[in-house]
């Protein structure tokens, strides 16, 4: 599918950048005529993916997060890449209530999965994690 627009950001894993990334994602998504609800869902899903990289990917150590947004003829893609610790068992991490911390709900992947149309997670221990989320839109909604 032909790419109509593409933005790539690289930023350090500071928690401040979680907000920056989701606001940018909302602005990028506003190129197509989505509902406010759709935009809110994208913001939550992006926030979860970036937060995972900050908290679980890098933790105390800092590292770069690559955030790429792609607009094609029928969907928006949001790709989050970190080069951190990686996830040992992706299927387990995607289960509701899976969390390594009692202050967290373990809903990160559940929100990504529920609020996007497609979620792909690839990870390797010690190498990092790539999360690719897709939100479909219908072509007649284009501005």
């Amino acid at each position: 599918m032909a790419t109509r627009n593409r933005v790539k950001m690289i930023f350090p894993s500071n928690s401040e950048n979680v907000g920056l990334a989701r606001i940018t994602a909302a602005a990028f998504a506003a190129q197509v005529d989505l509902t406010l609800n759709d935009i809110e869902e994208i913001k939550v899903a992006v926030s979860e993916a970036i937060s995972n990289s900050v908290i679980h990917g890098y933790g105390e150590q800092m590292g770069d997060i690559e955030f790429e947004m792609v607009l094609t003829e029928d969907c928006l893609e949001f790709i989050v890449i970190d080069y951190g610790r990686g996830i040992a068992d992706i299927d387990l991490a995607r289960q509701p209530s899976y969390s390594s911390d009692p202050e967290r709900m373990g809903l990160g992947f559940v929100f990504m999965e529920s609020f996007m149309d497609k979620l792909l997670v690839e990870s390797e221990i010690g190498k990092g994690t790539t999360v690719k989320m897709t939100k479909n839109y219908s072509i007649d909604q284009t501005h």
Binding site: R22, E40, K43, V44, S47, E48, S51, S99, D101, E103, R104, M105, G106, L107, G108, F111
Partner: peptide
């Protein structure tokens, strides 16, 4: 805005 970190806290 709130996400799972906000709900968790």
């Amino acid at each position: 805005f709130i996400d799972s970190s906000g709900l968790g806290v």
